[in-house]
Structure formats: C-alpha cells, structure tokens
Design a binder for these strands. Structure first.
Lengths: 145, 145
DNA sequence: TCTTAAATTTAGGGAACCCCTAAAATATAT
DNA sequence: ATATATTTTAGGGGTTCCCTAAATTTAAGA
C-alpha cells in the first residue's frame, strides 16, 4: 500500500484550499496568500506544506510553489466531494444560502464518513454540481443504480 | 462569564459517556469502566477527569466517583441534543438503523454548530425523542413557532 | 480486625500537532 | 545590480492525549 496517509483536519484545510486555487482557479498558490487566508504566519504554512510533501500529497520546491500530486488531488477531491454533498443537504433541508451551507459544511466535511456522504448522495439522486455550481466528484462506490 | 469553558472533542466524549451513565442509567461512573469503554488506560481517564474538574464541569473526589456539575450537565445535554438531532436526520433521510445513525452522529455531533442543529430540529418539527427513544433536550433559541 | 486483592491515582515521560518570532536565504522588480 | 518582498530555517512553546510503573486507597474475605 506504499505510503500510509492520514491527513489531520488542519492539513485537510490546506489541501482543500490548495486544490481550489490550483485546480479550480489556476492560481499560483503562494505561501503568503495561504497564510492570510488561514490566519497564520507564513512560516507555519511552510511547515505544514513540508509535512504534506512528506506524505506525498504534493510536490514542494523551496521558494517556488507547490503542486498537488495524484494522491493529493485524490484526497482533496474526496474532501471536496464530502463538502459539496453536505452543501446540497443543507441548502435543501434547511434552506440555507450557499454561504452558510459552505460554512457549516467546512466544519463537518472532514469528519463525515464516505459512506454517510454516499448515502446522502444517493438520497439526492447523485447530484453533479453543488449549490455554488462546482463539480461534485464521483465515488466509484456510490452506485447510481 | 466566570469560567471559560472550551471542551475538546475528546473531553466531549467523556462528558457524553459520563452523562449517560450518571443521569440516564443511574450508574456509578467508575474510572475503569470509562477506560474500557474508551479503550484507554485508567490513568488516562483520571487525567482527563481532572481536567474536566478544573473546567468546573464535574466534581471530583479522589478514589470516589465523579458527579457532573450544573455546567457539566448543561454541556452534556447540549452535546447529546446535537447527537440525537443528527440521528433523526440520518434515520429519516438515509434510512439508517439506530446503530448506524448513532455511529455517524458520534463523529459529527461535536462539530455541528447549534444553529445547524436548530435548523434541522425545526425541519423535523421539533422532535422530542431520538430514534432510540431517548430525550432530545430543548434549546431556548430553537423556537417552535 | 487484618490482610489481600482490586481500583485508582501520582510521577514521570513521550509523541503528534499547530503555532510563533527572528534571522537568513532567495526571488523579483526597478 | 540592488533594494524590496517573499519564503524558509532555526529554535522554541503550548496543548492534548496517551503510556508504564510505582504508590495509595478502598473494599472484601477470612
């Protein structure tokens, strides 16, 4: 099984942020920007990034940006799938606006099991986009039939 | 505001367990039992209990049991309210059985904001018992009207 | 009661995480 | 080229959770 990855909740936050920047907005992900975004110091960001790099979730070249590896992308997509399925649930049941749904989802996504997410996904007919129109990544274990 | 309480996720686990034993099953809560239940050593339980005691969530007398304080009871009820409202959601939407609903809820309850819980509560007509027939504590901020 | 077994607590550590400041190194823009 | 901005090292610190081994204390049996 190669590297055993276990991402902490904090690291998950970084992954989601980096994925959004890099893969969804094609932005170069900068240390300072991440730091501002998360309310920590740049040195802290560097440290966390180095940890993620050791877990093979991203490539890291000193003083240059980072790039998610295949595993990092997979992990980020898993997290964002959870996040967005939860958004679907909250906007539907609770009539939350996208902003609020996103906030609540951010608190829970990391902790939701994929099987819970898949059950919600099924209940909502396997939606393909979230309330803010972003892609909901599919999971092979989540059967449409 | 007196004591500033901020319970960690782990401490929350202890609180829920102690509350269930003490208030719902009138059992004397023993260190060893808690340890077995949570899969840790007795010494660890003692330590966490001492921390909870410093946060004024329970009374602690060495070698004798513990007893939740008013604040501890309130905190536990808050957590269990979240837990049970989530159970309602999962059994309804996902057709989960009570066991599974409980498992998933345990992972999320601590992280769900009370406002999210109240929104779900409202969507389900302010239920008073959870799927396993236990009381769902009410929240003054959760209006029935 | 006395003694022993069971339960509980201290003492003393350790590991994982996350965060910081100050100082150095590197990159970039003029 | 050089000044400025960005990023990284170096060196710490705090919290939380967990453990083992050695006391204590309680409780139960003889």
């Amino acid at each position: 099984m190669g590297a055993e990855l276990s991402v902490t909740e904090n690291e998950a936050k970084y992954l989601k942020l980096i994925y959004r920047g890099q893969c969804e907005e094609s932005t170069k992900v900068r240390t300072t920007a991440v730091a501002k975004s998360l309310g920590v110091r740049p040195a802290t960001v560097t440290e966390v990034i180095q940890n993620l790099s050791e877990k093979n979730l991203l490539w890291y070249r000193r003083y240059h940006g980072v790039e998610l590896t295949k595993e990092g992308i997979a992990e980020a997509q898993k997290l964002l799938r959870k996040h967005r399925i939860l958004e679907i649930l909250f906007t539907d049941i609770l009539k939350y606006n996208t902003q609020r749904a996103c906030n609540e989802s951010s608190k829970l996504d990391y902790h939701a099991s994929m099987s819970l997410i898949n059950a919600i996904c099924k209940a909502y007919g396997h939606p393909e986009i979230c309330p803010c129109k972003k892609v909901i990544f599919s999971d092979p274990k989540c059967k449409k039939k």
